[in-house]
Nucleic acid binder design. Structure first.
Length: 364
DNA sequence: CGCAAATA
DNA sequence: TATTTGCGG
């Protein structure tokens, strides 16, 4: 769950009109996780409150993505979804065994459905071997059918999004996590959704929120540190790749890094105040490398926003998942309309198609 | 989340 | 017309 940078990073409200005709890289796993956390019947976060179809599989990603992409198009935004590839071994490991597990579990699930063993099907559908892999698989299928481009990053989705912004291929990245800025993403957008409300932890209650923009360059200037040093701050607080040092939060990490310039000096001077036992030179080097030189997909041919393939969408949503036909149809109609106006906008502002000069690389 | 129907 | 409620399978 991303690095806790919210207290030291300045975020500015951004209006929808500033996003018209812009291309935004979407951190797909992050946004899907958001849909998962929200689309529930009860405030308790148990799987029991998920909405399932008659094949006992969750459907939050299907409705969620259809609605969300519709929302992007309605605001004149062109989304490119980025998915995780094989994630670094320091992060949650998706091994080959697990991939094999999924294929096996998938077969097992299909058998349970065939035998109308509802209880078993449900158990498998919600198991961790099956559910997330299948959610991701179906999300890609749906995006493909909707004519939305997506990229499978060799490493993490966030680093791929950051790369696209850095290269000027897209205008913004959209992720709720702050990890993107450690990856050097110059321009990050948060809370990009229609309802602009968020569930308060564990309660059946909402708080109003607004769409926010983070300018990395301005923030570094404001914090008076370099991106390298911000990464060191992140390592101290804790990221997906290292749990962090107990007793050091965002404020303290910032003060310490400002004072000592880097983690090495900090450990040398403050070793009696904190437990740096876990933070070996090897770990420091590895985590820094992940953020500074992430593996990304560089060849990006055939990025297109196509007309939705209605037959394929209907087949996935209604035939496979038994979603309400009328509901899907009316949404598809809106979708096509939004797509058309969006496309006219884009053709009108053709210059966005050409990748701009690579943005200033703060690292060099 | 996002929609549609109900409510003030 | 603006805000709340309940539902999706």
């Amino acid at each position: 769950m991303g690095v806790k940078l919210q207290n030291i990073i300045v975020r500015k409200h951004i209006r929808y009109q500033d996003l018209v005709g812009k291309i935004i890289a979407i951190d797909a796993p992050n946004i899907i996780m958001g849909l998962f956390n929200f689309t529930r019947k009860n405030p308790d976060a148990s799987d029991a409150s998920l909405i399932l179809d008659r094949t006992q599989r969750p459907i939050f990603h299907l409705y969620g993505l259809l609605y969300r992409v519709n929302f992007y198009y309605s605001k004149g935004i062109f989304p490119i979804f980025c998915f995780d590839g094989k994630v670094s071994e320091l992060k949650r490991v998706v091994s080959k065994d697990q991939l094999k597990d999924f294929l096996f579990t998938q077969k097992w699930y299909e058998l349970a459905v065939k035998e109308s063993n509802k209880k078993l099907a449900r158990q498998i559908a919600l198991s961790k071997e099956y559910m997330w892999q299948n959610i991701i698989k179906e999300s890609k299928q749906l995006l493909g059918a909707l004519g939305i481009p997506y990229i499978e990053s060799p490493a993490s989705a966030e680093s791929q999004c950051a790369y696209l912004v850095k290269k000027g291929i897209v205008n913004f990245s959209n992720s709720q996590d702050f990890d993107s800025i450690l990856f050097g993403c110059p321009s990050l957008i948060q809370n990009l959704s229609k309802s602009l409300r968020r569930k308060v932890q564990g309660k059946w209650q909402y708080q109003k929120i607004q769409t926010l923009h983070i300018n990395l360059h301005k923030n570094l200037k404001n914090l008076q540190i370099s991106l390298f040093q911000l990464i060191d701050v992140g390592i101290l607080i804790g990221t997906d790749y290292f749990p962090g040092i107990t007793g050091i939060g965002p404020k303290k990490a910032l003060t310490l890094i400002r004072k000592y310039k880097n983690i090495e000096t900090l450990i040398l001077k403050e070793y009696q105040n904190f437990d740096f036992h876990e933070l070996t030179p090897y770990i420091i080097k590895r985590v820094r490398k992940i953020f500074v030189f992430p593996e990304v997909l560089e060849s990006l041919d055939n990025i297109h926003w196509n007309f939705p393939n209605k037959t394929r969408v209907m087949s996935l949503l209604c035939r496979e998942h038994h979603l309400d036909k009328n509901r899907v149809n009316s949404n598809l109609a809106k979708f096509e309309k939004n797509y058309k106006t969006c496309r006219e906008n884009f053709i009108f502002k053709k210059d966005y198609l050409k990748p701009k000069q690579a943005t200033l690389d703060y690292l060099l």
